[in-house]
């Protein structure tokens, strides 16, 4: 598995996409710091970008890599290698290279700006950790969608639709249901609903940590009163982990019975 991971990783490094993303995150980091002139504020702005953009990039690159490396995959399948290792290796290669771009690209500007001497370091680390989780989750979802669809156009369409749903439509539906069901006690519902969406969950998690309740939506407010910050953190991270393991497991199961 580690060998396949290594080759997938090299393959991505060679394809220049990793550098494009690294460059993008570097630029983003520097621009945000320049505009905000303050680490903590930059972290908050960064959160909004990460929450939406990281899943999108992971989705698109995941699907693209899967379809583009079909030849590599068929070549590997004829070798004495375990199927699950092949797909797990490729998946970790993509998610790993994306996460490396993210951590290096954002970490460098912030470190240069004096992150290690500021109090924002924990918030920033949590932000990166969430970003890594989102990379893992959405790459797995992208692989799952691509495995289920041999038609590239369809696969791309469904994957982007999935992102759109989780990043935009879900929130809309959520708010709508809160307004419509105003008269009922909605705490548990709101809580459950935000756990069901990794993007919402990440947002809540970071906002809780940043302690800027004024900026919170209904979701976060409920979350805060329900869990308190530290238990909420543990549960949220646990659910994010579940969100990573579940699609990965489904993806591997799908891969096991697929014909090539």
């Amino acid at each position: 598995m580690f060998k396949i991971l290594k080759y997938s990783f090299y393959d991505l490094l060679r394809s220049r996409w990793s550098y494009v993303y690294l460059g993008f995150y570097l630029l983003l980091g520097f621009v945000l710091l320049f505009l905000n002139q303050d680490l903590s504020k930059a972290v908050i702005t960064l959160m909004n970008v990460i929450i939406v953009l990281v899943p999108l990039i992971a989705t698109i690159l995941g699907v693209m890599y899967f379809y583009n490396s079909r030849e590599f995959t068929t070549l590997l399948l004829a070798q004495p290698l375990r199927r699950s290792r092949i797909f797990l290796g490729q998946y970790l290669g993509v998610a790993g290279s994306l996460s490396l771009s993210l951590v290096l690209g954002l970490g460098l500007p912030f470190a240069l700006y004096g992150l290690f001497r500021s109090g924002a370091i924990w918030d920033f680390s949590l932000l990166l950790l969430t970003g890594v989780f989102l990379n893992l989750i959405f790459t797995a979802l992208a692989f799952l969608v691509a495995l289920a669809n041999d038609n590239r156009i369809k696969g791309f369409g469904y994957a982007v639709l999935l992102w759109l749903f989780l990043a935009v439509i879900y929130d809309g539906l959520f708010l709508l249901s809160l307004i419509l069901l105003e008269e009922y006690p909605l705490d548990t519902f709101a809580l459950g609903a935000s756990l069901l969406n990794p993007i919402d969950l990440s947002r809540t998690l970071i906002l809780l940590k940043l302690d800027i309740s004024a900026l919170l939506g209904y979701t976060g407010a409920v979350f805060k009163s329900f869990f308190g910050t530290s238990l909420g953190l543990v549960i949220s991270l646990g659910v994010l982990l579940l969100w990573t393991v579940l699609p990965t497991g489904l993806m591997l199961r799908k891969a096991r019975s697929k014909d090539f």
């Binding site: 030849e71 590599f72 070549l75 070798q79 004495p80 375990r82």
Partner: peptide
């Protein structure tokens, strides 16, 4: 899967990275 190291396979369409 291990049995495949006792095999050499030539696919019909040569697809490589």
């Amino acid at each position: 899967w291990a049995y495949r190291n006792r095999m050499g396979y030539l696919p019909q369409i040569a697809e490589f990275p």
